[in-house]
Design a protein around this nucleic acid. Structure first.
Length: 650
RNA sequence: GCCCUCUUAGCUCAGUCGGUAGAGCACAGCCAUGGUAAGGCUGGUGUCGUGGGUUCAAUUCCCACAGAGGGCUCCA
């Protein structure tokens, strides 16, 4: 019998006997690859390892340590979860169970509308481990639509999915595919899957949640179980450790511990108060932002928190964004709303006089506090609040100025974020959605300008097709924090709608009236949110220039208190935030207290220091304390560190 | 808003199979005077989230509500 030849991703070829499968190919390349293999890409299509290969196929083996491979593992683990739940809750209906970032979930409809409790997770997980130990094969079964409908006749959600399958989608020739583990358990699925459940095992069920069928709250609410799954126990443990680290850095926890802010229930959900220490950090952030904006040619404006409904009718907010707004207030026959955005008010400032092209670009900046109605369930500390302050600006410019303006804006964003210790940036260019207003030509012009700006700035970006706002394309800047988490930060949007709605004009060099382009941009986005991200990024250990207290001076004994106080006062006179602590506890205890307060510097003064005009310097993060540092030298060092805003995330 | 979990001292938590509660840290006082991550002793501290119900008796059991956390949904 003739053999067959397949091409590997590196371009090399491999000759195999007729009838060989992807698994055989992996084995032929090497036993290590076979062990790591979970699926294959055959001519760029995902396939099971048991897929027979044909002569001339291009084949790549998908290994468990790749993103694709983990998806397969997670998806297969989701099937095991479904089998366990269906066995433990006879009569349960199962819906969908896809892989997601770091794991998977599965949605169920339990008999009698029952719900899972946290305790159920242990039982389910135990059953899952039995299924893994049973080494059940994943066997693909192709069937016609009608056969599928018969097979899953008692599973209404599966029936709905099959009925929704477009001819030719997912499965070939109007057929559907399913994977069977046991005679009793089969799940509708596109695949691919690992060959057998024995290939799984490094997983953990995490939590239960309610989730609506097809994500639509008009539909029935299902019971969702989330799990995480990895290629090895080591990777699983690393992931769990990362979650613990994230918990340790939680801004809500640190916010309370470090006395930065809190959310008094008396004020209302999603509305926070900043304590003196948090307020100090916030003021430093804002001062820095103001100084940078001033240097960047922005002019500062101030606008009120409320406006009449007519303003938001004109801006379109009431038409498009009413669900996100606080409810109206009636007064003297007019209806007022708290503002959800600052832009309409900035439009009015633009329109306060006749504008000339000589004034453009006009950059109006405001630390503007806005209120948005967020449903109670989505609030998340300071990262998702109902009242927050945007570092908001609107730039009005001529069409020719748009591209250079966007390019310098991107450079501005990156400079600002770098000052706060962020080094990794990724952007998304969100383009025209299906539902949009305006002219396609305008969209293209604005989108090209945004793309050009990204290219000039050298920021890596991906295009998010159709994810722009209905009125404009935008760039979303993402950063990575100290433990690799990605956060969406700054937004730059080119808006055609508001200039039109507010009839913005300027007189050009040609003495004719023109409509300006307008860019919305918020760099921190929300001051509160950025503050929360900083807390998590630095794990509460703010860099010296931002630390609420920069130095605490300790005397070795309490008869050194006066020397400690005097040194702290001297540092204060030099413009630093320094305090001293009385020697009513042993030195080691006071050192520990200062360390737990995450202070950048602890100074210790004893007999030797008083005699020599020096101090012991215990810097945060240093291996060992330094002795006998001259006070002047320390002041210079501190000044250098603060003036240059040196950062070192913990 | 919906599903799950939680709410006991300033903080973290234990506890009472129904008889109004404890520990560590923190705080206060005294003693210790210690050169780089917890010295000792003593002491005060609670409407057990709120409201109702069952009961001789509720922090404990039941119901409702509020708040918090994890999700869903939405995100101009």
């Amino acid at each position: 019998m003739a053999g067959l030849t397949v091409t590997l991703p590196d371009g090399s070829t491999k000759d195999l006997p007729q009838g060989s499968t992807a698994a055989d190919l992996a084995a032929a390349v090497g036993p290590r690859l076979l062990r790591a293999a979970v699926a294959a890409l055959v001519n760029d299509a995902e396939a099971d390892l048991c897929t027979p290969l044909a002569d001339g196929d291009r084949v790549a083996i998908v290994t468990a340590t790749s993103d694709e491979g983990r998806k397969v593992l997670r998806h297969s683990t989701a099937h095991v979860l479904a089998q366990a739940v269906l066995q433990l809750w006879p009569g349960a209906k199962f819906a969908i169970g896809p892989p997601i970032e770091n794991g998977f979930y599965y949605d169920f409809d339990l008999p009698g509308g029952a719900s899972f409790s946290e305790e159920d997770l242990a039982r389910i997980e135990a059953r899952m481990r039995e299924i893994v130990a049973e080494d059940q094969p994943f066997v693909r079964e192709e069937m016609t639509r009608d056969e599928g409908l018969t097979t899953f006749a008692d599973q209404p959600y599966k029936v709905e999915i099959i009925e929704g399958v477009e001819p030719g989608e997912g499965a070939t020739h109007g057929a559907v595919s399913a994977y069977r583990n046991t005679p009793a358990f089969i799940d509708l699925c596109r695949g691919p899957h690992v060959p057998s459940t024995a290939r799984l095992g490094s997983f953990k069920l995490m939590r239960v949640a309610g989730a609506y069928w097809r994500g639509d709250e008009r539909n029935r609410q299902l019971q969702r179980i989330y799990g995480t799954a990895w290629e090895s126990d080591k990777a699983l443990q690393e992931h769990l450790a990362m979650l613990e680290e994230a918990e340790r850095r939680d801004h809500r926890k640190l916010g309370a511990e470090l006395d930065l802010f809190h959310f008094p229930p008396e004020i209302g959900g999603g509305l926070c108060v900043f304590h003196p220490k948090g307020g100090l950090v916030r003021r430093l952030m804002e001062d820095y932002s103001r100084a940078e904006h001033e240097a960047g040619g922005y002019q500062f404006v101030f606008t009120p928190h409320l406006a009449k409904s007519t303003l938001f009718e004109r801006s379109g907010h009431l038409e498009w964004y009413a669900d996100g707004m606080y409810p109206p207030m009636e007064m003297e026959g007019a209806t007022y709303y708290p503002k959800p955005m600052n832009c309409p008010m900035h439009m009015l400032i633009y329109n306060a006089g006749q504008r000339s092209y000589r004034e453009l670009p006009l950059r109006l900046f405001e630390l503007g506090t806005v209120y948005r109605f967020e449903r109670s369930g989505v609030l998340h500390g300071i990262l998702r609040a109902r009242g927050f302050t945007q570092d908001d600006a609107h730039i009005f410019c001529t069409p020719e100025q748009l591209a250079p303006e966007l390019a310098s804006l991107l450079a501005f964003v990156i400079r600002l974020l770098r000052a706060f210790g962020f080094e990794e940036f990724e952007a998304e260019l969100a383009t025209r959605p299906d539902k949009f207003v305006g002219e396609p030509a305008e969209w293209d012009q604005a989108t090209d300008a945004l793309r050009h700006a990204l290219e000039v700035a050298g920021v890596p970006f991906r295009v998010a097709e159709g994810e722009g706002a209905f009125y404009a394309p935008k760039i979303d800047m993402h950063i990575r924090d100290a433990i690799g988490r990605r956060w969406q930060m700054s937004t730059l949007q080119v808006d055609f709608q508001l200039p039109r709605r507010f009839h913005l004009e300027y007189t050009g060099a040609d003495n004719a009236r023109h409509r300006p382009f307008m860019v919305h941009r918020a760099l921190f986005g929300s001051i509160e949110r950025f503050f929360g991200i900083l807390v998590e990024h630095y794990a509460g250990a703010f860099p010296t220039w931002l630390a609420p207290v920069q130095v605490r001076v300790l005397g070795v004994r309490n008869d050194h208190d006066e020397a400690a106080r005097s040194l702290a006062r001297r540092l204060g006179d030099e413009g630093f935030r320094a305090e001293w602590a009385a020697g009513d506890e042993p030195l080691a205890a006071r050192i520990r207290r200062a360390k737990m307060d995450k202070l950048p510097y602890i100074l210790v003064v004893g007999d030797d220091d008083i005699a020599a005009g020096t101090a012991g310097v215990n810097a945060r993060g240093a291996e060992r304390p330094e002795r006998g540092v001259a006070a002047e030298a320390f002041i210079e060092r501190l000044r250098h560190e603060v003036d240059n805003r040196l950062t070192s995330p913990s």
